[in-house]
């Protein structure tokens, strides 16, 4: 009997030593790290791959200010960013305030061992129902988030780190999101209908996921961006 209790104690000890932090600690540690970035200005290249959108690669400056201000500037050009809740910032996809954290085990992302956490925010106004976060515990980086929102469906954000690891900021972010259908009456648009073969049309209807890739070329972090930067033209 004594041996049995010793074995149980040993297993509990081992469990504790495999995970450096418990789920809640890990989550708050990650959130604190993410929140260290108060603002940044980044040169970016953005590729939008949404079935109904034909947009060339966009290049411009991306301004971010915590908690959720974001603006892309393209020297007089038009920029397109996902709206409000489905913001591109990690800060916005990691729930703030009081949360319930559930340990969802371990997994791998690109061959790296990661801890998986499920986070349920208590604040309903955040618009987030559930966040699932894949965390590289050693580097204390979120490599993937899967956020289920109240109105905007599910957003998956994959982050790749490299050149800007010292700021814990990604080199590349890939956002996969649900997109709503887009349709305008043909009587208004008067399309030149020779263009779209019917097979392509069917494919469009089926595929309702959109992918946005952002390549960060350079960052200027915590420079104290003023709010005026975000009062740009908005259509």
């Amino acid at each position: 009997m004594r041996r049995f209790w010793l074995l149980v104690l040993a297993l509990l000890f081992l469990q504790g030593s495999v995970y450096a932090y418990d789920a809640e600690q890990l989550y708050y540690k990650l959130r604190d790290k993410v929140l260290l970035v108060k603002d940044y200005t980044a040169d970016v290249k953005m590729k939008v791959d949404i079935t109904y959108m034909r947009i060339p690669m966009l290049q411009g400056k991306l301004y971010f200010k915590a908690p959720n201000k974001m603006r892309m500037e393209r020297k007089g050009g038009i920029s397109i960013l996902p709206r409000k809740n489905v913001n591109l910032t990690l800060n916005n996809l990691i729930p703030n305030g009081k949360v319930t954290v559930i340990d969802a085990g371990i997994g791998t992302i690109n061959g790296k061992a990661v801890r998986i956490l499920k986070v349920i925010p208590e604040d309903e106004a955040s618009g987030i129902v559930l966040s699932k976060i894949w965390i590289d515990e050693t580097a204390m980086l979120a490599l993937r988030t899967e956020t289920t929102t109240q109105n905007e469906g599910t957003v998956i954000m994959d982050l790749e780190f490299g050149k800007f690891l010292k700021y814990s900021l990604p080199d590349k972010v890939t956002i996969t999101m649900d997109v709503k259908e887009y349709k305008l009456p043909k009587g208004i648009t008067m399309d030149y209908s020779e263009v779209t073969p019917s097979a392509a049309k069917d494919e469009k209807v089926k595929n309702k996921k959109g992918v946005i890739e952002i390549h960060y070329l350079s960052y200027a972090v915590n420079t104290g961006l003023s709010d005026a930067v975000f009062k740009g033209e908005e259509e």
Binding site: I80, P82, R83, G232, E235
Partner: peptide, 19 residues
Amino acid sequence: FFKFGMQNITEQFDVQGSI
């Protein structure tokens, strides 16, 4: 006028700049 045509888009995306 253009906001009307862009409704489907602006529900999900912020379109910034001089359209």
